[in-house]
Design a binder for these strands. Structure first.
Lengths: 174, 174
DNA sequence: GATTTTATTGAGAATCATTATAATTTAGGG
DNA sequence: CCCTAAATTATAATGATTCTCAATAAAATC
């Protein structure tokens, strides 16, 4: 999946009657070069590409993200921010899941091979073609609880520990 | 959780500085009486209650759903329809996960106790308070694939097998 | 290589779910 | 029973995403 080049993408697209365009190629390449642990919204991607001098319209960004997610090339993540995030859909050794603090949106990745196996088995049992399989764990940090969460906190309150260091960490194995 | 009555709800609410209102009570009761395998959107709930003569404003519906999800009483599901769905957040023997066809939104529930265990362990490890833990499996049915999915199908195409019988089924164990 | 067909792009309008606002009502502690 | 803060309601506002349609560009065909 990470070794997907333009020719591979072209043939995948052709199989479903779609065309390889420079926009689609750039978007996929962008995700392939993104360090592990990053997920972008459509808007994020739009700006990130614009900064590199690649001006792809927001409509095209939205359309491409959706198409590639449906093709199984990207994963569509529903974390806690009210909009979708995307990342490369990587196979086994890199496939991972997310633990999210619903108050401050801090996201922690973790791997657990048994979960993907469950997904594969379940889809097979129903005779469906698997696209993605994600465990999302919603939680709150004790800092927020102590402050009266969920009722007393303003919706934009961020727990102090989210402010020092990385907001997103990668953790291997449970 | 299923045995939650008005007094329990009141005390949970009071703990976080909130009040028990007839609206909140009715909403929770509605979910408690909903047969397993049903998940409602805010709009669905609004209409369902209206039909019973309970006219609760849409704003209140939205606010109550969000509050109860944050309290851990309800689960917020992100299936494939572009809006959230809610269901009771039930503990162990009833806790379940979802397999969704992203083309026709057919949803199949299944249980798998190991997943909840993973969620508990992972939240504990990070020192966070667990709210919910859901495995969502995205898939497509072979009928849609055969018809050229994802590119050639109109967005509202529904696979034939979703049309006969139940759209939502409950399956126990993987 | 030129032509033709058809998917794709881009800009903006439109939509739809959800959240915010502000005035009115109500829960529930004193 | 009164008072205060929380909740409700209706409506406006927001914001993410999708749609529309004219212009463009893949890629199949000649």
């Amino acid at each position: 999946m990470v070794l997907y080049d333009a020719a591979d993408l072209r043939s995948e697209l052709h199989q479903i009657g779609c065309r390889l365009t420079p926009q689609r190629e750039k978007i996929l390449k962008f995700f392939q070069n993104l360090p592990q642990g990053n997920h972008l919204s459509a808007e994020d991607l739009y700006h990130a590409l614009a900064q590199r001098g690649e001006n792809i319209s927001l409509s095209t960004i939205y359309r491409s993200l959706k198409l590639m997610a449906r093709m199984g090339l990207l994963r569509e993540l529903e974390l806690a921010e009210g909009h979708k995030h995307y990342e490369l859909n990587q196979p086994y050794p890199h496939h991972h899941h997310h633990l999210v603090c619903v108050q401050c949106n801090r996201t922690i990745e973790f791997t657990n091979p048994a979960i993907l196996k469950t997904g594969v088995k379940q889809a097979e049992k129903e005779g469906l073609h698997l696209l993605d399989c994600q465990l999302t764990i919603h939680a709150v940090c004790p800092e927020a609880l102590r402050r009266g969460w969920p009722s007393l906190l303003p919706s934009h309150w961020v727990c102090p520990r989210a402010l020092n260091g990385t907001v997103t960490g990668v953790i291997t194995e449970n």
